[in-house]
């Protein structure tokens, strides 16, 4: 399986490449008053409106310097998933979602058994497992948990 990695405050995270539609430079965000604090707002990507999830807020990391806009990862929608992703049982939300990250990083190829369950001390709600590649560690982000938490307004879990 191929994974796409990205950085949040120098920590490396990963999502399956099959659920990533594209990377892009930040677009102007429209804030949504009263929304979940993990959400930055809305962006217009070529006529489609996507909700921007701020990964720093989700992982309880202090915000970036306002001048640093980071990078954006547009995730596939459930309709847009390729068959391979479906077979692997990968999750995708049915509306466009963007992850706002510090920077996108490399893409790696790995076997499914290289993803290990998160060690007990990793106390983060949106983690599917960890990956060790050579000396580097990556945290596998559970997009499903992330989205469902926001969807059901369980903000207390975000603390």
């Amino acid at each position: 399986m191929q994974i796409s990695t990205f950085l949040i405050q120098n920590e490396a995270f990963a999502v399956p490449s099959l659920v990533v539609e594209e990377y892009f430079r930040p677009l102007p965000i429209t804030k949504v008053p009263g929304s979940n604090r993990c959400l930055d707002g809305l962006v217009n990507i070529r006529g489609r409106t996507a909700v921007v999830i701020n990964m720093r807020t989700c992982f309880e990391v202090p915000p970036r310097d306002p001048s640093d806009l980071g990078e954006m990862i547009l995730l596939e929608t459930s309709q847009g998933l390729v068959d391979e992703a479906r077979e692997l049982g990968l999750y995708a939300f049915d509306e466009p979602v963007v992850l706002s990250v510090d920077s996108v990083s490399q893409i790696f190829q790995l076997a499914a058994d290289e993803i290990h369950p998160a060690p007990p001390h990793v106390n983060q709600p949106f983690v599917d497992g960890v990956i060790q590649l050579d000396e580097a560690y990556f945290t596998m982000v559970s997009i499903q948990k992330l989205i469902e938490t926001i969807l059901h307004g369980k903000t207390e879990e975000l603390r």
């Binding site: 429209t30 949504v32 008053p33 009263g34 929304s35 979940n36 959400l39 809305l42 409106t49 996507a50 909700v51 939300f93 049915d94 509306e95 979602v97 989205i147 926001i150 969807l151 307004g153």
Partner: peptide, 13 residues
């Protein structure tokens, strides 16, 4: 968007 529906004060965008 579904993720914003619990705001309750927007009918759309």
């Amino acid at each position: 968007p579904k993720l914003l529906q619990n705001c309750g004060i927007f009918s759309g965008h």
